[in-house]
Simulated scan of single mutants.
Amino acid sequence: MNHQEGINAIEKNIINRRTIKSFKKEPISPEVIIELLNVAKWAPNHKLTEPWRFQLYVEAGKEKFIEAYIQSQPKVDGEVSEKVKRKAQYFRDIPVHLVVIMPEDPRQRRWDEDYGAVCSFIQNFQLAAWERGIGMIWRTNDWVYDPTFRNAIGVTPGEKVVATLMIGYPDHVPAARPRTDIRELLTIIDKR
């Protein structure tokens, strides 16, 4: 029996979404991204703080993002390494880069609630995009913490880069990797 029989479209979308690392070069209009962000904004959000802001890098604007990445990388004898150059070219070939930024509230509870809301927002965005045939990878590489990268893209002290989303139409969709059955991770408490 097909494990997806009897489930609804939302459930199928959640199960079938994949992290995409290989993209077609076909561009995506900023308007499409804006439409998807307007869907994603309905994420659960305590107190409706809407603790997010975004930077969208497309076309020639991607160079600002890529240069910030390059500047944040260690140099070898004053030169950018071949590995960094290859990664920069990989970034150039991806149609869209979206940086998701949240304010870092000093109150732990507010910080936790805001971070949860932003992560829910990103998942909504991924699922809405997937429904339209658009894939992405959610990156939180070490360089997003580097002051050189942060300064170069205008992230200020007191803000957290929650994600750099690299977005495009999938060139390759990887197979699903196994997930643990929830029964193995669930404790049911049915008595006092």
Rank of each mutant, 00 (worst) to 15 (best):
A60P: 08
A60F: 06
K62F: 06
K62E: 11
E63P: 08
K64M: 02
K64G: 00
F65R: 14
I66Y: 10
E67I: 00
A68M: 01
Y69N: 09
Y69F: 15
I70D: 06
Q71P: 04
Q71E: 10
Q71H: 11
Q71C: 05
Q73S: 08
Q73F: 02
Q73A: 03
P74E: 00
P74C: 05
P74K: 04
P74I: 05
K75L: 10
V76D: 10
V76C: 04
D77C: 00
D77R: 13
G78M: 06
V80R: 15
E82W: 07
V84A: 05
K85M: 06
R86K: 13
A88M: 02
A88D: 10
A88G: 05
A88F: 09
Y90F: 12
Y90T: 05
F91K: 07
R92D: 04
R92T: 03
D93P: 09
D93C: 05
P95N: 14
V96Y: 05
V96F: 09
H97Q: 03
H97E: 02
L98W: 12
I101P: 11
P103D: 08
P103R: 10
E104R: 14
E104H: 08
P106V: 08
Q108C: 01
Q108G: 02
R109Q: 08
R110T: 08
W111I: 07
E113M: 14
Y115F: 15
G116P: 08
G116D: 03
G116H: 04
A117V: 15
C119V: 04
C119A: 15
S120I: 02
F121M: 01
F121Q: 00
Q123V: 12
N124F: 12
Q126M: 09
Q126W: 12
L127W: 09
A128W: 08
A128I: 03
A129K: 07
W130V: 06
R132W: 03
G133H: 10
G133Q: 08
G133C: 08
I134W: 13
G135L: 01
G135N: 00
M136E: 01
M136F: 00
M136T: 07
I137Q: 13
I137G: 07
W138P: 04
N141R: 04
N141W: 03
D142N: 03
D142R: 11
Y145E: 11
D146C: 15
D146R: 13
D146Q: 15
P147G: 04
F149C: 05
R150V: 01
